[in-house]
């Protein structure tokens, strides 16, 4: 396997809230291979957005990267000076923030906003910038004569396409998209995902897709990183992590999701309880209070077990995962966790 494009090692990000520290990301490690789409999934507050923002060091004022490495192109993004980081942003790593479609400036035309990026950050001249804008619009499937329109003249889906065009403007190696389709209707969502996948394949760019929706991940991603309560529960290829999950949390998520493909609408199984408060997380495995397979040993910090090459799992019982999967498929298993 070739060298990954991005390698995150034991990343830690903390927020200061009053006098307390909340460890929103508490030792996350994963790789992003070149030319892949990776889904970063988890529930609200699991730290997925914080990870995504930490990768470009665009984090809140009261947050700080407190440890770990972010290796990108031989550089550690966690440590390089702000000036170098700023040079990387947009040119090498583009970030599409959550609800990017609403973050376009309403008083300027879309062309003006593209032009600003292309000329100021990309160093193109006026003519090159115009040509590139047209090319970008064509790429994301919008008629080039709509460049002179204002953001409010576009529908939500179209604005999301514009946001993608903006991200692609300087040919980045990595695009990080935070919930790019969450606010969109299913049909538009599907069309945007198809577009994103097509562009990713054509341009060979790597994409990190941050989302809470494992259906979206299943549809478009090659790999997935599943986060729970500030830690990576497991990561691996789509097949490994979704079809045959090895972490009980991922198994539970599969059960909780309604599926249109199944024969009939069966019974959905919730995971009892709610994610822990990160200001005072449970000792040991953070999923322990909700896990039906928890043992006494789970009160201690779980190891990262490589159940298959490139498929690390953060669980004491990772080696028993085949047996647990069978158990997990039964609704009763989740009714009364230990």
């Amino acid at each position: 396997m070739s060298e990954p494009l991005l390698s995150v090692r034991d990343l830690r990000v903390s927020y200061q809230v009053g006098r307390n520290f909340v460890h929103a990301v508490d030792g996350a490690s994963f790789d992003i291979p070149r030319g892949s789409i990776t889904g970063l999934v988890g529930e609200s507050g699991c730290g997925k957005t914080t990870v995504a923002r930490a990768l470009t060091r665009v984090i809140a004022e009261n947050a700080a990267i407190t440890g770990g490495q972010i290796l990108f192109d031989g550089k550690d993004l966690a440590k390089i000076p702000e000036k170098d980081m700023n040079a990387l942003r947009w040119r090498d790593i583009a970030f599409i923030p959550q609800s990017a479609m609403n973050s376009l400036d309403p008083v300027y035309t879309v062309e003006y906003q593209l032009d600003e990026v292309l000329r100021r950050r990309g160093g193109l001249n006026r003519k090159q910038s115009r040509a590139r804008s047209e090319e970008l619009f064509e790429m994301v499937g919008i008629d080039a004569n709509r460049l002179t329109d204002y953001p409010h003249q576009f529908s939500g889906g179209m604005r999301q396409r514009v946001a993608i065009a903006l991200a692609l403007a300087l040919d980045p190696k990595l695009i990080i998209a935070d919930e790019p389709v969450t606010a969109l209707d299913v049909i538009v969502q599907r069309q945007i995902l198809d577009q994103l996948k097509e562009l990713q394949t054509r341009l060979g760019v790597s994409v990190i897709l941050v989302t809470h929706d494992i259906s979206v991940v299943a549809y478009i991603c090659d790999r997935t990183v599943v986060m729970y309560a500030g830690k990576v529960a497991e990561s691996g290829t789509m097949q490994a992590a979704l079809t045959a999950p090895s972490h009980p949390y991922t198994m539970g998520l599969r059960n909780a999701f309604p599926d249109l493909q199944g024969a009939a609408a069966g019974i959905l199984t919730p995971i009892e309880g709610a994610p822990p408060n990160l200001a005072s997380p449970p000792a040991g495995c953070r999923f322990k209070p909700r896990c039906p397979f928890a043992l006494d040993i789970c009160g201690t910090e779980p190891p990262i077990v490589e159940v298959a090459p490139g498929h690390p799992v953060l669980c004491h019982r990772a080696n028993e995962s085949a047996a647990l999967r069978i158990e997990a498929a039964r609704t009763e298993t989740w009714m009364a966790p230990a």
Binding site: E272, G273, A274, P275, N277, S280, P282, P289, R290
Partner: peptide
């Protein structure tokens, strides 16, 4: 198992 979000 009661939900955890509401501590004591």
């Amino acid at each position: 198992m009661p939900e955890i979000a509401a501590p004591a």
